[in-house]
């Protein structure tokens, strides 16, 4: 049997990996010329299930705990397990207590430890929360690595195309079209996220840093080549137009508060992505007439795509059964 995956973003590629490792032939279709061109390419890439728990359901923590292991296996060498550092300006120090009350898996650290973890932040903050179990990756590199691994496994890609490959009949179709599914999926809405890339060699960070603020929380994720991803807003709209001046101002202001050297950084890229979300902001594997859909990844694409891909694979294969016999159609397979 062959499964067609529509969409080569983080959900589609994770699904392709989970299915192909179970011996299912997979083809991937995407209108874009390369993989990961949607919201995936603007993701923070933080594998931060504990921090996300601050404003997310318990399920985000439980489903996300194994994500770092999954990415390490799917894209070896791309995962950095250095934890997350959560800081606040002195006058917003109460935000740290609030954040601590909503999360777990952290250690309180003082100025000395902050300086040991991130020497460039030494002396700037008196206390912080350190989440040692968390990890991060560069979404673009991780997607490229995953793409290469899938090619190696024999997954066929049809990029730059909207037509179904005519030479194969598919026993199931899995829709992983991200924001494009908003128009056709009941209950799905768009949540706009804006981000920018700064480049400076004046400072370096080893791990994602989250700056708490009552109104403009922000995170800075270090990338290669002295780059820093700064994000991200959460705006209730499916407008994917360019970033607003206000958001840029807030980002730069907050980044400057983390370290004044960001004031001299170059702004090398700005981006906007629309994250599809259900009312509870949790993703789902949906049943469709011709197969399934993975929908509503919200801001948790890299954190929860592995869990969704696994759920999909279990639905397709049946938890205790071998994959479909090669000749059975999808529907027969589902009702065996």
């Amino acid at each position: 049997m062959t499964v067609l995956i529509k969409g080569a973003g983080v959900a589609g590629l994770a699904a392709a990996f989970e299915l192909s490792r179970r011996g299912i032939a997979v083809e991937v279709l995407d209108a874009a010329e390369t993989v990961g061109t949607g919201a995936s390419s603007y993701a923070g890439g933080m594998i931060a299930p504990y921090c996300e728990r601050e404003a997310a359901d318990e399920a985000v923590l439980t489903l996300g705990l194994s994500a770092a292991d999954w990415w390490e296996e799917a894209a070896p060498g791309e995962v950095f397990r250095r934890g997350t550092l959560v800081i606040a300006a002195g006058r917003d120090s109460g935000e740290l207590d609030r954040f601590a009350a909503r999360t777990g898996g952290y250690e309180w650290v003082g100025g000395n430890t902050i300086g040991e973890l991130e020497p460039d932040l030494a002396g700037r903050f008196d206390r912080a929360l350190f989440f040692p179990e968390e990890a991060h990756l560069d979404p673009r590199k991780a997607m490229a690595g995953l793409y290469a691994a899938l090619i190696e496994r024999g997954v066929r890609f049809h990029l730059g195309s909207t037509d179904l490959p005519s030479d194969t009949s598919f026993s199931a179709v899995v829709e992983c079209t991200g924001a494009a599914a908003i128009a056709t999926t009941r209950g799905l809405r768009g949540v706009r996220g804006e981000m920018l890339f700064l480049e400076t060699s004046e400072i370096s960070l080893s791990r994602p840093v989250r700056l708490l603020h009552p109104r403009h929380p922000l995170y800075i994720v270090p990338r290669d080549n002295h780059r820093f991803m700064v994000g991200a807003t959460m705006i209730e709209t499916d407008d994917d137009g360019p970033i607003t001046a206000r958001s840029v101002m807030e980002f730069l202001n907050a980044a400057y508060a983390v370290h004044p050297a960001f004031g001299e950084a170059r702004v090398v890229e700005m981006g906007v992505g629309v994250r599809p979300a259900f009312a509870d902001n949790l993703p789902r594997v949906l049943d469709r007439d011709d197969g399934f859909a993975i929908a509503g990844m919200y801001r948790h694409g890299f954190l929860l795509a592995p869990a969704m891909a696994r759920q999909l694979a279990e639905k397709l294969c049946g938890a205790d059964r071998p994959p479909f016999s090669p000749n059975s159609s999808f529907r027969q397979g589902a009702t065996q």
């Binding site: 908003i182 799905l188 809405r189 768009g190 706009r192 705006i235 209730e236 709209t237 499916d238 407008d239 137009g241 607003t244 009312a279």
Partner: peptide
Amino acid sequence: RRETAGGRQGGAFFEL
């Protein structure tokens, strides 16, 4: 204001 970047009508969130 924040929910209507670009002056669009907030769509799904306002529906909710």
